[in-house]
């Protein structure tokens, strides 16, 4: 980004952002679910111009040796070059892996999926839930969009039926993937001393660091500080407050689906 523009964003961030928002405003969030029939669950999230598509696939697998009676959740992210000239094709880099793991932590630690219910035969067969995050257009705040997409896709996901011979029948369903809470991630970024919510791609060029906070109704279930910068305790508390406040709002919106 042109240095002049970077300076402009930094200098004005406390008063106004390029798109007219204040530091506490989220862009318009819309979610479309069940658009990929072949997937067990799917959601297309549009946050401003950021577009993230999340698909849920379920498959049979063997449980981990130390937890024979629980199903498995695997979250993967792909930042395809379709979404931005900065994204390179190839195996996920550390940014992409961080995105997948932070979204995963928010879902896993919230307890919203009862993994015991995904056990078919203890020690032998369990359901594996694959959450695949695909970025289609990068205009910033991929973490929150991906997290909203993941939980929306899981909320509307259906468990395939098991045939008598033990194979998966994807044309018939055996109920919904039970999701009892809605973990919502809210990212607050640090720009020139100001804690700013929902940064655009332009703003992400000047952020010093980020705090990702995932909240559920009972409290906070996951957090991540990202970026090579220092945060004061007050700034961390601002990020937590943002997640609680905006989490409530977003949870209401997503529950309506």
């Amino acid at each position: 980004m042109i240095e002049t523009n970077k300076n402009y964003i930094r200098q004005n961030i406390a008063i106004k952002r390029l798109d007219g928002r204040t530091y506490k405003d989220f862009r318009k969030l819309s979610v479309e679910t069940n658009l990929i029939e072949k997937a067990e669950g799917s959601a297309l999230v549009t946050l401003g111009e950021t577009k993230v598509l999340v698909g849920v696939k379920m498959d049979l697998g063997t449980p981990f040796p130390d937890s024979g009676d629980v199903g498995i959740l695997m979250t993967n992210a792909e930042r395809s070059p379709i979404a931005s000239p900065e994204f390179e094709s190839g195996p996920p880099n550390d940014d992409t892996i961080e995105l997948a793991r932070v979204v995963d932590r928010g879902i896993r630690e919230s307890g919203c999926i009862d993994f015991h219910k995904l056990c078919i035969k203890e020690g032998e067969k369990v359901w594996m839930v694959f959450v695949d995050i695909s970025i289609l257009n990068n205009d910033g705040n991929l973490f929150d969009a991906a997290a909203a997409g993941a939980i929306s896709a899981l909320l509307t996901a259906k468990i395939p039926k098991l045939n008598d011979n033990g194979t998966v029948n994807r044309s018939e369903y055996d109920g919904a993937l039970v999701v009892t809470d809605l973990p919502i991630m809210v990212t607050t970024a640090l720009i020139n001393g100001v804690m700013v919510v929902d940064p655009t791609a332009d703003e992400e060029e000047v952020i010093e660091g980020r705090v990702h906070v995932t909240s559920i109704e009972a409290g906070i279930c996951a957090m991540q500080k990202s970026g090579s910068c220092e945060f004061t305790e007050e700034q961390i508390m601002t990020a937590i407050d943002n997640s609680i406040a905006m989490g409530k709002e977003l949870r209401k919106q997503l529950k309506k689906k």
Binding site: S42, L53, K57, S89, S134
Partner: peptide, 18 residues
């Protein structure tokens, strides 16, 4: 040209990557 199929685009999940 880079053509890719996303993991959830098919019946049985496809491992991402070329």
């Amino acid at each position: 040209v880079k053509y890719s199929m996303l993991a959830f685009s098919v019946n049985d999940r496809a491992r991402p990557g070329p």
